[in-house]
Design a binder for these strands. Structure first.
Lengths: 150, 150
DNA sequence: ATATATGTGGATATCGTTATCCAGATATCC
DNA sequence: GGATATCTGGATAACGATATCCACATATAT
C-alpha cells in the first residue's frame, strides 16, 4: 500500500526532525534509518528538489529540514515520492460518469481522501513528540520517570 | 495507491454482481469493464483460485460469483490481488519496538486499518444497489422517475 | 592551493507489475 | 465423434520501482 520509497522518505525526515539544527549527512541518516545508502541519496535528492529539505556540500554539510517540524505534514513528504492519485474522473472515461463518479469509484476515492486527511493533519513534530515508550528510529527503551514506584 | 490490478478486479466483480445468474465470459467482462482481455483472464484466474469466482469452460461457460453479492466485501476482492500489508512489527526490526510500534509506524498502520475497515464493511451489493445517477460500468444516464415534474 | 568531506547526476542492474500471446484442456451442441 | 466455445497455464515482453556505483561538482579546513 505504501511504497518502500515512502517508508524511506518518512524515516529520513523523521530523523531530520529529531536532529534539527545539525545537518545530517546521507551516511548518518542511512545508518540511523537502516535505508540503503545509495538509494537514500536519491530519495533525499527528490525531497530537496521538492523543497522539503535543504542540502549543503562539503565538510559539515548534509541535509536539514527547510521548515520547522511543526510546519511539515506527513502528507507533504509522501506526495514527493508517491503522489496520492485521487480519483477525480471516471477511470473508464464513461461520459455518464464525467460529473458524478459511480458508487465504486466514489468509495475508492473516499478512502484516498481519508488517507490524505489523516496524513495532512499529522506533522513531523507530532510524530517526534508523541509521548510513547517507543521513540522513532531509536532502539533504546524509553524510561518513563515516576511511572513505577517501589 | 491502489494498483491497476485492484481496479480491474473490482470492475470485474462488480460486473459479475450486476449479472448474477448468467455466467459472463472473459470477453464480455473485458468489453464491459474496459480491461485488457488477456490480462483480465489472469486476474479472473487469481479470483478463481481464491474462491471468489467460479468458472466453467465450454459453450455457455464463463465466470460467476461464488457467493451472493451481499456476502462479498470489497476487501475480499482487493486482498486477492493486492494484500494490504498491515504494519504489525517494526519495519526496522528494532528490539525496542517489537511489542510497541513507534508513533510513525503506528500512524501508518492506523491508516491501513482504516482502509481495511472501510472496505470490509462494503459489499458488492452495496456498490451495485447504491442509489445514484451513475450506475457502475454503465455509460447510460440513469433516469430518476418522478424526479422532475412539469 | 591542497586535502578532505560531501552532495549531484548519470549509467546501469534487478525485480515485480502490467500486459500479450498461444498451445492445450475441457465443456456443449449437433 | 466433430465442431465450436471457453477457460488454463506457460512463455515472453515492456515498464516502473528499487537499488548500486561512480565520476564530478562544491564546500571546508589548513
Amino acid at each position: 500500500m505504501f511504497s518502500q520509497t515512502t517508508e524511506y522518505a518518512l524515516r529520513a525526515t523523521v530523523w531530520l526532525a529529531q536532529n534539527t539544527g545539525t545537518p545530517q549527512t546521507t551516511q548518518q541518516i542511512a545508518e540511523a534509518t537502516k535505508v540503503p545508502l545509495g538509494y537514500l541519496a536519491k530519495v533525499l535528492q527528490a525531497l530537496g528538489r521538492a523543497g522539503v529539505v535543504r542540502s549543503a556540500r562539503g565538510l559539515h554539510g548534509g541535509f536539514e529540514l527547510v521548515k520547522a517540524p511543526e510546519m511539515v505534514s506527513i502528507l507533504e513528504i509522501i506526495v514527493v515520492v508517491e503522489p496520492i492519485r485521487r480519483i477525480l474522473s471516471c477511470p473508464l472515461d464513461l461520459n455518464a460518469h464525467r460529473l458524478k463518479l459511480c458508487p465504486l469509484h466514489k468509495k475508492m476515492d473516499q478512502a484516498l481522501a481519508m488517507i490524505e486527511e489523516t496524513f495532512s493533519s499529522t506533522t513531523l513534530a507530532d510524530i517526534v513528540n508523541t509521548p510513547s515508550s517507543s521513540k522513532p528510529l531509536c532502539d533504546v527503551m524509553q524510561v518513563r520517570l515516576g511511572g513505577a514506584r517501589a
